[in-house]
């Protein structure tokens, strides 16, 4: 998988901006990618040193439109901690 396929998009929310102050950057990643692949992708694309990667599943949400029920797809997120002094000039879309 190419690094650009591993990282889908940055996640910019109130919580994620707060995390940035601690040098942690949040991405939505390919569901098949693992922590090691994410570390490699981030290091290659942004030319930074990664200290830690946490991944988690965003559960699917039930949605209903009229009588038809369904779910949104579940997604995988990664919170990447960078080495002190490194930063990513976010976020121009990956």
């Amino acid at each position: 998988m190419s690094p650009y396929d591993v990282l889908r998009r940055p996640i910019i929310t109130e919580a994620s901006t707060d995390a940035m102050a601690l040098n942690k950057y949040t991405f939505e990643i390919d569901p098949r990618a693992n922590k090691i692949e994410v570390r490699k992708a981030v290091e290659e694309i942004f030319k930074v040193r990664v200290v830690k990667v946490n991944t988690l599943w965003m559960p699917a949400k039930p949605k209903r439109r009229g009588t038809s029920r369904g779910y949104t797809s579940r997604r995988k997120k990664a919170i990447v901690t960078l080495a002190p002094g490194d930063s990513i000039e976010l976020f121009d879309g990956v």
């Binding site: 996640i11 910019i12 929310t13 109130e14 994620s16 901006t17």
Partner: peptide, 12 residues
């Protein structure tokens, strides 16, 4: 999106 009203940072 992603922020409560009034909570977005200047850059965003």
């Amino acid at each position: 999106p992603g922020f409560r009203r009034g909570k977005a940072p200047r850059k965003i």
